[in-house]
Design a protein around this nucleic acid. Structure first.
Length: 193
DNA sequence: TTATCGATGGTA
DNA sequence: ACCATCGATAAA
């Protein structure tokens, strides 16, 4: 079932939680690729200094102020892309960054999709998809089996140290134990079989 | 294993 | 100048 616009019309933190376990689908050029979302980050509004919308309304951030359920894709460090879903009511400039997926379909089982840049590279998401409606046949997100609360871990967002206290807010969510999370807290040593 | 560094281009 | 990253390399 394709997630409806009403799904995204809620606070970013709620959407970030509910997106865990859902399936990101890009079906384009006769190539359907699907990834199960295992890591997200919420950017909750203009007052959130880590949110791009904190810079105000510009051509780049305009989409964040628009209706929920659209894609916000931007270029980072000149060579990678990051994929977000616009959330909350129109006029509330918030979004959820999808930081990692697990390959499900159309991707080699070995391709790395842990990390916002890697998953966009693997799926082929680029600036060309910016502002797309997530109800489109080519790009949307499908509901997955419910994820129990015990499987959800939370921590500070990655790479937003410039945001002061906002960098400490536990707005990063991920599936406990997933091998496809970008920065698992306890993977320094692998279990011995 | 962790730490450091450079690539590369849109945005302001 | 800055940047919601990544991969190569070095050090240990």
């Amino acid at each position: 079932m394709r997630l409806p616009a009403s799904f995204y019309a809620r606070p970013a933190l709620t959407v970030a939680r509910e997106l865990l376990g859902a399936r990101l689908v890009l079906d384009e050029g006769g190539w359907r690729r699907v990834g199960r979302i295992v890591e997200t980050e919420a950017y909750v509004g203009e007052h959130d200094l880590a949110c791009h919308a904190a810079k105000g309304r510009t051509s780049r951030t305009e989409v964040l102020f628009g209706p929920p359920g659209r894609a916000y894709v931007y270029l980072i460090y000149g060579m990678y892309h990051c994929f977000n879903t616009v959330t909350d009511a129109e006029g509330v400039a918030s979004a959820v960054l999808v930081r990692a997926v697990e390959p499900v379909e159309g991707l080699g089982p070995r391709v790395r999709t842990d990390g916002p840049g890697r998953l966009c590279r693997a799926l082929g998401l680029t600036l060309a998809h910016n502002r797309w409606d997530l109800q489109s046949a080519q790009l949307h997100i499908e509901a997955g089996p419910p994820v129990p609360e015990a499987q959800v871990e939370r921590g500070p967002r990655i790479g937003v140290d410039y945001a002061g206290e906002w960098a400490l807010a536990p707005y990063r969510l991920w599936l406990r134990g997933s091998q496809h999370v970008s920065r698992p807290p306890g993977r320094r040593r692998r279990e011995r079989p």
